[in-house]
Design a protein around this nucleic acid. Structure first.
Lengths: 232, 232
DNA sequence: GCCATTTTGTTCCCACGTTCACAAACTCCT
DNA sequence: AGGAGTTTGTGAACGTGGGAACAAAATGGC
């Protein structure tokens, strides 16, 4: 029951909607770059790959930013979503674990262009220290606390092997980080109030493999005659 | 109604359950490596970071592999889940787009250890051709069809820039690939029967940023008096 | 053999998310 | 100005998923 700002209405955006807002943002940016000034919910829904009713309901959680009979002003809606997500401000980020994936993340241009600024790359391996990756020098993991304090870092990215991940997360939380993006294949336990999101490359492939196997299985089952030979 | 195997029951596993099976598999592997032979649903639930009731319900979709009053045999359950997902067999995979992320994916050991074999790395850039990445030579993108046909590839990974992603997906589908893991920040349109899963690094960060902003906002809102009354 | 104990498998119920369908509201044309 | 045509915003129905609670089944002690 914290005090609510009077200018905001209900202000309870469902988690599923939050996860789609960045997709809408990207679609709106693409439309804007095509020179399109106005779009209908149907247009935007197609660009974002969702149902238009869902899109309208999602946007309605933010407010009434469209005009009936007309549609949405691309730039205006884009700004409103960006403000809602928080990407109009600058988010300092630290990346821990500069292996192959850490390299790729440090070089990923999609971060900087969306308000995320990589302020430090950390690794426990001394051989990597002072090496420049994407123009940023790799520093010792023990510098974590100083860097977090100096830059006011709230978001940390873990790209270490699984065995180190929990230790890194503990140190991050102790240093004051409250949001963690975890690429290590391990379950992190963190205190309440700390958000963790997990990206697991091999899990995604395994989900695909399951469906792939089912396709093959179903096809074989449909192709073979169920009557003969299939002794029960 | 396609013909069903007589030994299988309903065999409709919810999507949410499918997404968790790889997590259970990983947790079981960790338990097995610790020398644990038997575990309760509670033990496994803790290791996987889920509720034990949910875990039991998930496993019940596969069959009755536990023993009441005892628990689950770790190795047996591990095999059953692996078989259900399909990771007991070998899945040839092609990766298209050998930039920073493509490099990281090619080197990711979590693939090979789970039944996924990278049979080819493809890139349109001739400068990369014949370069060895993780022991595999980079080949021209135009070799896609030949490689898919030769190895019977069903799963493709897209790690190209956004502008190329749809074209790569179209070529993959035409070549016979029916499951795509897309790391490019773009919405792919594919025909029915083709599965696409999307991993978007910057979207994950944006979701964290939203929650981070809300934390800061709530804290400020609790400390400061309401600002302006924007009544209608 | 029988009871107490443990733990699974399942049922029931609630909350969340998705989709349909439609009234409200805006533009444009005559 | 008024009506026809669009398109948003939302209420209501529907489906999926999560969690508590419990009956069923196994073990072990006596």
């Amino acid at each position: 029951m914290t005090a609510r700002n009077s200018s905001e209405t209900a202000r309870v955006i469902p988690e599923a909607t939050v996860a789609r807002l960045p997709v809408y943002l990207r679609a709106l940016t693409a439309l804007a770059e095509s020179g399109i000034r106005t779009c209908s919910s149907e247009d935007l829904a197609v660009a974002a790959g969702v149902n238009s009713a869902k899109l309208r309901k999602d946007l309605s959680y933010l407010g009434s930013y469209g005009t009936r009979g007309v549609g949405y002003d691309v730039d205006y809606l884009r700004y409103q979503i960006a403000r809602e997500i928080g990407v109009t401000q600058d988010w300092p980020v630290v990346i821990v674990g500069i292996g192959n994936l850490g390299h790729a993340l440090a070089n990923y241009s999609g971060f900087r262009s969306r308000g995320f600024r990589v302020v430090a790359l950390l690794d426990a391996d001394p051989h990597l220290h002072d090496e420049l990756v994407a123009g940023v020098a790799v520093r010792p993991f023990d510098d974590l606390e100083a860097i977090v304090a100096e830059h006011g870092v709230a978001i940390g990215v873990i790209a270490t092997p699984a065995v180190s991940a929990q230790n890194v997360a503990d140190r991050m939380v102790a240093a004051g980080i409250t949001s963690i993006l975890n690429f290590a294949p391990s379950v992190l336990s963190v205190p309440d109030g700390v958000d963790v999101r997990k990206v697991d490359l091999s899990i995604e492939l395994q989900i695909l493999a399951y469906h792939e196997q089912r396709k093959a299985h179903d096809a074989a089952g449909a192709a073979l005659p169920p009557v003969e030979g299939a002794a029960l």
